[in-house]
Design a protein around this nucleic acid. Structure first.
Length: 975
RNA sequence: GCGCGCGUGGUGGAAUUGGUAGACACGCUAGCCUUAGGAGCUAGUGCUUUCGGGCGUGAAGGUUCAAGUCCUUUCGCGCGCACCA
């Protein structure tokens, strides 16, 4: 018997597929198309890693499955070749990035072929090829024409090691995404794409995307839309320094509203309803007015503070400490609602780049403002009063820590103390009326001891149940405060509030919520524990107070009413802001697509006309950037000096190159029409193939997946495509970790090389099948060499049983009914599972089937039944192990390639065996089972169930009150 | 802090609509076999047991004839964003 030898059959079939150009597809509107692709790889020198192998095992399974369903399947590949590693390699070795890249591509290509991935190699693209980046540059000029590409001088993230600017998306927790070094801010003139123009458009489509929720959420958060109002606070004339008219906002054009306001400060808020509680104004240090507002003695401190803050990176400012810092300017503004004089402060907890760079601080209803007010002793005015409610009925109010103070003499509870999660506040609820004095005194003591200046007494009309809280974000601090309460109760300080004989007799019990609540309801009358939720730092909704004519209104309604009122007074307007910034795309590096712009002394920045594209990257000697903020291209003088396309006068080329993400933002369109020299793509062709039906990857949740959407939205608006969204379904798979569960890394030496697995004798089929069998594809998984062996064993069993069939004497006497049931069941299960990308269970189904075959073969082989079963098995296994599938298919006499044969179908009537097993439950417990004919009727089955020996024992003399029959599954007898 | 997701044997994981929890595989145990291999085949493998059964899906309650699945509360873990007003 021929042994299963992947190292022999795999190269053989790879050659056949290549010779036959088996996976090349043509645009054919008469056929149903299926476009599936993985995120194209950056071909590094290290070669393919397990992540690539995993992605393409998924892509290829989907491609092959659909091809076997007769669809026109596009499975292309390309290379994302621009970028720093190739350039850094060039700097180190002197090898041109183009040469190194070509070597790496050849290597990757060989590896993809050895994986047996069914790629249409005629469509291979490479982003650093001039025939490709010509069109990337063309897209740039189109964006430039539409005002979506612009140049602006601003503070930008700068990587001191890579010596280039970075987009916001490329800064991860303050560090460069590539090299991990701490990034800095630098003032530079940079190119941007105006993605903010598409914020709403991108946001609107998210809901309908068939993408994983976590990616959709990440994108939604990234865009960060906030609806609120922009409100003008007039600077008080007498105290304010003169505010110059020409001031402009520090970073973004959108906050230019500030500059319109000559003697006012414009703030952004999502809670205009709380404006009566705005007791001070805070400006970001970068705010153009911050220095100008300095008055008298405050000036010196202010200047020093602003200078120090601007120098610090935003990361330091946020990471350092949450302790609030800030300085008073000496100036005041007028609250447009209350007319109150409100001090203007400068503090770095307000971000220059968001909103208007200025806020109205409402310490009563914002934690950060509260902390600031607390530290600098600024006034707090509550303007939203929460609705009252019994704790357990109010989801806003959840207790995490509860302490009860009990008098052991009378065994009565004197007070119950809640450490409430709500708003990070400690709510200390006084228990009974007779204890109010004690608790109140204690609370006042706490306030003094702890410096919690805003411990507040809230009273509810009628009942006078008092509630207090001390603010702290920190749970430990809350417990501390709570504990202090008990100390104080024991302390002489509250002696006067206590009866002399009650002194020092309190015990404290710490309980969890459930215990405490049951005590509350058991031992205390529940009504006496009605709590007022809230106090000074409450950020929920409620009823307006201290807000003039708006008192008594619901805060949610007041929001609109107050904006309308301010609008009338021309002091405010509705306003929406976004966290997302424009996409910074210029890079001061050599190895990228040159930005197709010529700077003319007369005409400014002029786009290179289409007939002069591509602007080819010149060959140079020294690729290293010198840290002068310019790319190495600036030194290619012959290339830089050119003429203006408008006037023909001498002009200079732009020397920055484009972010690599620009190149990858349209490649999914180019795959459809990769050789087009007339245009980037033929819309007709692209509208047939695109959008991508299934896109597979495990990275770039925000960056690439947002940019590719952005560009496609723009192309839609330009009429270049007839769809807005580039990717219908996104499969975002997990990471594959090393055997020990940690991340694979070269330094730890625990990297698994997929090629090694193939070469060690397991072959590509076992590798691919194993990758999909490990678990659900969206989950992270740990590599297991034993696991590969297990899958290899399975493939061997498939091989062996087929060989045994081929070499056996066929017996015509055999009844194949069991075989037919197993086969039909398997086809149904495998088909359904693959459709929902549940590859691990599909493979489990195939394993189960093969296990069945081993049992059934003991009866001998029949001609027809076994041939049907084994050819169907070969077809199904082709999704995971395509080499073996073609080999076995051919051995079994199949015509052509297995992928061109029609996927096996199943017959539902053959899925159920003649006799079925029904479980029997008595009072919900399994007590037996009966085997009945598949079309036995319900009554018959019920009486059979009751007659069952063990069941009868449990039923005894009792008469069932109810008997439920779940067809084909179970009988439930209720006594 | 906010948002999202997840808790099932020794391990990875099944259970698609509320219907026999633990499919399939790894590992382990025993037996058979010999081309001594990274073998192969067969059987067993949730815990517990007085062999009747009892208990079991992070914990506690609830709905239901029936709950891993639905509801309430809670604990733990992971990821994303993080002073975004």
């Amino acid at each position: 018997m021929q042994r299963y030898n992947p190292s022999e059959i795999e190269p053989k079939w790879q050659q056949i597929w290549e010779d036959q150009k088996a996976n090349e597809v043509k645009t054919d509107p008469s056929k149903h198309k299926m476009y599936v692709s993985g995120m194209f790889p950056y071909p590094s020198g290290a070669g393919m890693h397990t992540g690539h192998a995993f992605s393409w095992a998924i892509v290829d399974a989907i491609a092959r499955f659909h091809r076997q369903h007769g669809e026109n399947v596009l499975n292309p590949i390309g290379w994302d070749t621009f970028g720093l590693p190739a350039e850094n390699y060039a700097i180190k070795t002197g090898t041109s990035p183009a040469v190194a890249t070509a070597t790496n591509i050849a290597n990757f290509k060989n590896q993809f072929k050895r994986m047996g991935v069914s790629i249409d190699w005629s469509r291979e693209i490479n982003t650093s090829d001039p025939s490709y980046y010509k069109w990337t540059q063309w897209v740039f000029t189109k964006l430039f024409e539409r005002g979506l590409a612009y140049q602006k001088e601003s503070l930008q993230w700068w990587c001191p090691v890579d010596k280039t600017v970075l987009a916001n998306e490329q800064v991860e927790a303050g560090h460069c995404w590539r090299c991990g070094s701490l990034v800095e801010k630098k003032l530079l003139k940079q190119w941007f794409f105006k993605i903010t123009d598409y914020a709403d458009s991108l946001l609107d489509e998210i809901e309908d995307l068939d993408w994983p929720q976590k990616i959709k959420t990440a994108q939604t958060n990234w865009i960060g839309k906030s609806v609120g109002a922009e409100i003008e606070f007039l600077v008080e004339e007498t105290s304010a320094a003169r505010v110059s008219a020409g001031a402009s906002s520090p970073t973004e054009t959108r906050s230019e509203a500030v500059s319109d306001a000559k003697n006012s400060i414009s703030v952004f808020t999502t809670r205009p309803d709380t404006i009566f509680g705005a007791t001070f104004i805070v400006l970001a240090p970068e705010h153009p007015l911050s220095l100008q507002l300095g008055v008298g003695d405050f000036k010196a401190d202010l200047e020093e503070y602003v200078k120090a803050s601007v120098k610090k990176s935003e990361i330091e400012r946020t990471n350092d400490t949450k302790e609030k810092t800030g300085v008073f300017t000496g100036s005041y503004a007028i609250n447009p609602a209350s007319g109150e004089k409100t001090p203007i402060w400068v503090a770095d907890y307000v971000l220059g780049g968001y909103g208007t760079g200025a806020i109205m601080a409402v310490p009563a209803h914002d934690e950060r403002d509260f902390a600031f007010a607390n530290k600098f002793r600024l006034p707090v005015i509550a303007v939203v009063e929460p609705e009252t409610g019994v704790p357990q009925e109010n989801p806003e109010f959840r207790q995490s820590i509860v302490a009860i103070v009990r008098d052991p003499k009378t065994n009565k509870y004197l007070s119950i103390n809640w450490g409430a999660k709500n708003g990070g506040n400690l709510f200390i609820g006084g228990g009974r009326e007779e204890n109010e004095d004690i608790v109140e005194t204690a609370i006042r003591e706490i306030a003094e001891e702890t410096g919690y200046t805003h411990v507040q007494l809230v009273s509810q009309t009628g009942k006078m149940h008092h509630n207090y809280f001390a603010h702290s974000k920190n749970v430990a601090r809350r417990i501390e405060a709570n504990a202090l309460l008990f100390d104080l109760i024991d302390d002489e300080k509250v002696e006067t509030a206590l009866e002399a004989d009650e002194k020092n007799k309190f015990t404290v019990e710490w309980l969890n919520e459930t215990e405490a609540l049951s005590k509350v309801s058991d031992e205390l009358h529940a009504t006496s524990f009605e709590l007022l939720v809230g106090g000074k730092n409450y950020h929920g909704e409620g009823v307006m107070v201290n807000s003039g004519q708006f008192d008594g209104m619901q805060s949610s309604q007041a929001r609109e009413a107050i904006v309308a009122w301010l609008e009338e007074k021309k002091l405010g307007r509705e306003k929406t802001t976004y966290k997302m910034r424009d996409w910074l795309i210029s890079r001061q590096r050599y190895w990228g697509a040159p930005i197709p712009i010529i700077h003319c002394p007369d005409h400014g920045a002029v786009a290179v006309p289409e007939d002069q594209l591509p602007v080819v990257l010149p060959e140079i000697e020294d690729y290293a950037p010198k840290g002068d903020g310019k790319s190495a291209l600036a030194r290619a003088t012959d290339w830089v000096n050119t003429t203006c396309p408008e006037c023909g006068k001498p002009a200079l080329r732009e020397t920055d190159t484009m972010d690599g993400y620009a190149c990858s933002s349209w490649y999914l369109l180019r795959y459809a029409d990769p050789q087009n020299v007339e245009q980037a793509w033929d819309p007709e062709v692209v509208n047939y193939w695109n959008p991508v039906d299934v896109y597979v990857g495990g990275d770039h949740a925000v960056a690439h997946l947002l940019y590719v959407r952005f560009w496609t939205h723009v192309f839609y608006d330009m009429g270049l495509v007839n769809f807005k969204e580039p990717v219908k379904k996104l499969i975002y798979h997990g990471y594959i970790n090393a055997e020990d569960g940690t991340k694979m890394s070269k330094s730890k030496g625990n990297v698994v090389d997929p090629l090694d697995v193939i070469d060690s004798g397991y072959g590509a089929d076992a590798l691919r099948t194993y990758l999909l069998f490990m678990g659900p594809i969206e989950l992270d998984a740990s590599w297991s060499t034993k696991g590969v062996a297990g899958v290899y064993r399975f493939l061997n069993r498939v091989w062996t049983v087929t060989q045994q069939y081929l070499e056996s004497e066929k017996n015509s006497e055999i009844n194949d009914q069991k075989l037919a049931v197993a086969l039909n069941k398997t086809i149904k299960k495998v088909t359904d599972d693959i459709r929902r990308q549940s590859f691990n269970t599909a493979i489990a189904g195939l394993m189960e089937f093969v296990n069945d075959l081993y049992k059934l073969k003991l009866d001998g082989f029949s001609e027809k039944g076994w041939h049907d079963a084994l050819t169907a098995l070969a077809q199904m296994i082709a999704v995971f192990a395509p080499h073996m599938a073609d080999e076995l298919w051919t051995q079994l006499g199949g015509e052509g390639l297995v992928q061109n044969a029609t996927w096996p179908s199943w017959d539902d009537s053959l899925i159920v065996e003649d006799m079925i097993t029904i479980a029997i439950q008595v009072n919900g417990k399994l007590r037996g089972e009966v085997t009945v004919e598949k079309n036995a009727d319900a009554e018959e089955i019920k009486s059979l169930a009751l007659a069952h020996e063990n069941v009868a024992k449990f039923v005894g003399d009792q008469k069932p009150t109810k008997i439920i029959y779940v067809p084909g599954r179970l009988v439930s007898i209720v006594l």
